[in-house]
Nucleic acid binder design. Structure first.
Lengths: 190, 190
DNA sequence: TCTTCCATGTAACTCGTTACATGATTTG
DNA sequence: CAAATCATGTAACGAGTTACATGGAAGA
């Protein structure tokens, strides 16, 4: 098994229910996008490889309304591979925050550029926070019935905290940079 | 100019002082590693490309003690390229938190594996937090003399907040998962 | 003397994104 | 009827890591 994490996300997704490649892509976008991402270009080849090595089985389905789709089901070896991967230590994330990088060198930018940058981050995370909070309500309602809900909630709470932290941070950034961004704000008023 | 962000990190680094490829790699590891990373394999080719396109100039130096090193200096076009890049909107980060992914599918792991995972995250971020706090003290001391310090502090405050947030989060995760991880703790005692 | 650090670079590889191609079906 | 969505896939590219190769100088 390659160390490609794409294959493990797929195995994980298939523990929830049998899915097609398309379903998996949507699961990633809708449910785990705050901490993971995958593209179609990775999912389809990975599915094929998982099938070739006997981790999942493919079934061609005519679909509910005549549409062809290939639905994959997790097999015992796939479940085992997932279990083993879960027990191995997680690789620390490789950080790449472009907005922080720009802010770091902000002295060499026009002040308005930095003002815009901070506003962009704030709006982005305010939107996310609303979204996560709605997801959190849903998850809490499923705590007693869905055995996965507890783990999913634990992760989502990280997302909620993260977005909230970023919002507070943007306020602090404005305070810290106040002396140097002042000029740009007055420029707005003029 | 390629959209490779490596080249912009280099341009940014060279605003601080002329540096060799080796210096730049160390700058990244020592100073911006909490929000960015680069490897030698990217830095050297990028430097060559920047030189070929007239953004930086290379000077072969015999070094203080006979050692050969190539020191790069930022040129006007490089400064301009950096400025333009800073004014463009930042690409949102592509999230890839392996530990969250594992936690999300944690129901299918041995409970001890999740206990270890959380401990790993906590220790890692506790160490980081200490380190960031030391950096923060240094930066604050330079606020009045170094015109870059304000921007660097703004970014670093994000790192401090982030590490602190993660520490609080790990406590919450343990609370949320308490009912399902209980078994594993009793297993420890046995 | 041996190890570590300084210093530069290349090659092979993996990872991941984007764009494209195709075509059916559903909804406005 | 047109646009959006469902659905699967490939090709080309670009980004990024790792391992390797090389060699000098400093320090233990």
């Amino acid at each position: 098994m390659r160390k490609s994490r794409t294959e493990y996300v797929i195995l994980g997704a298939l523990t929830l229910r049998p899915m097609s490649g398309y379903d998996i892509a949507h699961f990633v976008r809708d449910t785990v996008s705050h901490f993971w991402s995958e593209s179609f270009g990775q999912i389809y080849p990975a599915l094929r490889h998982l099938e070739e090595t006997g981790r999942v089985s493919a079934r061609r389905k005519a679909g509910a309304r005549g549409r062809e789709r290939t639905v994959y089901t997790l097999l015992r070896p796939g479940r085992e591979a997932l279990r083993e991967w879960l027990a191995r230590p997680a690789a620390p994330p490789v950080p790449r925050y472009e907005h922080s990088l720009k802010l770091f060198f902000g002295r060499h930018a026009q002040p308005e550029a930095m003002t815009r940058l901070i506003a962009q981050v704030r709006e982005d995370h305010a939107r996310r926070l609303n979204h996560y909070r709605a997801m959190e309500r849903d998850l809490r309602a499923r705590l007693d019935t869905d055995p996965d809900a507890r783990f999913q909630l634990a992760v989502l709470r990280g997302g909620v905290r993260y977005a909230g932290m970023v919002l507070e941070w943007t306020r602090e950034v404005e305070e810290i940079l106040d002396p140097v961004l002042e000029a740009s704000r007055e420029g707005d008023a003029a």
